[in-house]
Design a protein around this nucleic acid. Sequence first.
DNA 1: TTGTACGCGTTATCAT
DNA 2: ATGATAACGCGTACAA
Lengths: 337, 337
Amino acid sequence: MTIYDISKQAGVSIATVSRVLNGSANVKPKTRKKVLDVIEQCGYTPNAFARGLGLNSMNTVGILCADCSDLYLAKAVYYIEKNLRGGGYHTVLGCTGYQLEDKKASLAMLLDQRVDAVIMVGSNFIEAQSGDNEYIRDAASQVPIMLLNADLDCPGVYCTMCDDFKATQEVTLSLLDHGIHDILYLYNSTSYSGIKKLTGYQSAYLMKDIPINKQFQQYFNGSHEDIDGVCKLLTELHKKGLEFHAVLASDDMLATGAVKYAKLHHRSIPDDLSVIGYNNSLLTTCSDPEITSIDNHLETLCSQLVKTCIGTLNGEEMPQKTIFSGELVHKATTKLI
Amino acid sequence: MTIYDISKQAGVSIATVSRVLNGSANVKPKTRKKVLDVIEQCGYTPNAFARGLGLNSMNTVGILCADCSDLYLAKAVYYIEKNLRGGGYHTVLGCTGYQLEDKKASLAMLLDQRVDAVIMVGSNFIEAQSGDNEYIRDAASQVPIMLLNADLDCPGVYCTMCDDFKATQEVTLSLLDHGIHDILYLYNSTSYSGIKKLTGYQSAYLMKDIPINKQFQQYFNGSHEDIDGVCKLLTELHKKGLEFHAVLASDDMLATGAVKYAKLHHRSIPDDLSVIGYNNSLLTTCSDPEITSIDNHLETLCSQLVKTCIGTLNGEEMPQKTIFSGELVHKATTKLI
DNA sequence: TTGTACGCGTTATCAT
DNA sequence: ATGATAACGCGTACAA
């Protein structure tokens, strides 16, 4: 069933059918109705490939994320897809994993597929070595690239992020002000935003002129679901004699591990130990006590990102960087005001 | 940059370029090299739309799920996408929500986009009223439809699922055998597999000739993340005087709520109360104690589903139904063998 | 082994 | 307001 079949049955030319299909004004109401009737009756749908060939677009945006089964990334994908759909765009998804070569390959696949734009979700897409981001710059010369929670200065690259630095800085300051100076910072990512969070923590110490103990910055090198591993790490530190009265984690999973550790060693939360997570995800309410966590307003970020994306595709001038603030959500693992 | 440009620069016809591109055997090695060099040098990529138009396929499969931020569905999407990519297919994602009309619209979008097949993830896609599944049957006449954890008898529809009935039946039997007769069954879905799980529970009572108390079948009508709501529901039942010494949940989130309830009311797990979840997700290890849960081998299901999908697309004869067994994974909320 | 020419189903540009 | 026709870029049957 093609546009020709419709045109014949309706007794008009394909041009007229096309006009009806695309809502062109220049078509007599009576003709329009006739054509629409035939279309309805035949259950005709325009061929998307032919349309794509002609317009050089299938209204499709690619989403890249390392692992869409990750609690946080999954939510991001969800919000982004929803907003894209609302804007009339299809979403093609690629989970790249954390290896650079795989990221490159996935991005190349999307470009081959002629997506209109690419959205890269998660700061892990920006590598520490500037040269390793070259493939993103290259891609940006072909289609707009949108980054969520990452930063890359380059024409065609648009960044939407939460000010993670400020968020951890403020929380750390607050803890220090309450007399808790031995804050263990627990992190599992050295990505762009991972580093931002860490430096936020460090800067608070600098501001208060309190010396930083490197022992208090602990990198957890395990899977994103290995809560027990986190518990073990803290237990080791504990046994080594490291004293800490707060755990600030770059991730709710890590914070959950900290709560487990506290229970295992009968340390009372929040009196003896405060725990603060990041993302304010479902995990914060699974734990007992529920975990205080930094919320980076993911839904807002995603909504704004897609607005910027669609705006750009419409040829509008859009901001290269959009930055929101995080917010500490108090629950039961802290006794701060 | 088109195939014409390449053909000119290489001094051959577009047919030869096309042959090189598609790995046709009938091309002289020397010619092939020359063409490949030009392609390499120009960074040429075939236009996917034109290719799609000619072949009537862009090697794209649509995934539909109600909510890809749901822990379980996200994992499914992850595995499926991975397998599809491995098989050379692109993935377009649609989150439909739980409303029938939205599901219909999403499916229609995918068909308009001319995907090669559609994968519907989650039993919530099969409605209780048979007529409400008509849109799926219609779609199946156009492209193969793959169902994960759902069942629909219809040509062109392929089902891959876990035997949820057997899984809950066996667990319930085991509890009954251990003398626990007051098992609260907690569920939040009346989908195909939701019903299967429930009837598995019921059938165990029938087999043992133990009367069923309807009070023990509790439907939780809340959000998929409302752990506190679950806790409240159980508290209410408790206060009403309903006695139960086990909670069998259709979902780990519900089980997490049950653990919370137990703590709140100082009921010891597993001595006074056993708790069993479903899906064996991350949530089972977030709780303290860790939750015994039924694992339905999602990764295996997804891998098999994609095999069936790709096989079908290759014109091979594939089984209409593939059924795997679930497995109880013992953790700390049960004392069964 | 290679080249020519047509078809795929649209959109868009001109005429009329 | 409508129609004829040329792109769009590729795959492929057929010819050479």
